[in-house]
Design a protein around this nucleic acid. Sequence first.
DNA 1: AATCGCATCAACCGCATCAAT
DNA 2: CATTGATGCGGTTGATGCGAT
Length: 331
Amino acid sequence: MGRPPCCDKIGIKKGPWTPEEDIILVSYIQEHGPGNWRSVPTNTGLMRCSKSCRLRWTNYLRPGIKRGNFTDHEEKMIIHLQALLGNRWAAIASYLPQRTDNDIKNYWNTHLKKKLKKMQNGNEDDHDKGGNSFSQSKGQWERRLQTDIHMAKQALCEALSLDKPSHILPEITNNYPATKATTTPNQTSSLYASSTENIARLLENWMKKSPNSGETNSGNSFSNNMVTTGSSSSEGAQSTLTCTQQDHHALDSLLSFKSFNSGYSQSVSFEENNTNLTSADAGNFQDESKPSMDTQAPLMFLEKWLFDDGANQCHEDLLNMSLEESTSVLF
DNA sequence: AATCGCATCAACCGCATCAAT
DNA sequence: CATTGATGCGGTTGATGCGAT
């Protein structure tokens, strides 16, 4: 007996989401939080399958999503991370918390792939002259590891709120007036406002396109709804959850790296460091389902390591790697 | 103005993984 | 241990927009 489909295919709507559907989905998630996607279509009356609801939320409606052009910095991050991790878009996205895996994947396939191929063609001659392939790949591997450490440090840095407290601790008590949605995207600590922006922009476009632009009831009522419910603490908690999950994902990379790297001599030795875990933020990670001993000990080392190291070199080191170095392993 | 080709990106599909039973 | 169901992930598709001819 085969596994039944995740949803009843009959009567399931496909294709682009309408603003009305978005509103229904966002309202429902505001009330119940993300998760238990199977119940979403049933409880909301949306004629969408649960997967579609989840995807719409994670890729478009979720708070804190940054859309639009990728910055040079983001672009370089993606290139380097792709060289490090391959097409593991979710893992790459965990290093760019404001971008979705789908966004990064699309950007890679439409922009970066071509860009790198172009560059690679330009460097083909140099490659043919390559020397000892083993030592070369080993060097690249070492550099990958080094870069991964730096990336994980950055993620942990943010997770422990050393430099950006607001990133992980949303201002739950703040109220966001409707006008907040029109503020500049650069304003921090406004994860919910960011979501409001998404919806507001969406509605704005919809109202422009809609022939019944006179009937703005849905838009207005939605806007009001966002104002009243947007300041709720549940949303703040939800944002925390999102950030924590993402940061933890990045941390997982390092933790897995540690075990992977156990037999390999590295410039940084986790075992040499020993300190007590005092940070409440770090303790948050223990709420995850993994056994606490598995994460606590490495976290202690990492925290000590971070405090000791202080300087934020990861960006520099990572970005100072030439694009050629990074992309040479791709082709 | 028409249409053709290409680029972009939201959404879908199928498989993998994990947890519950 | 096997089965089932929910969720996550990566590859792919298709609708749409836009520039070139």
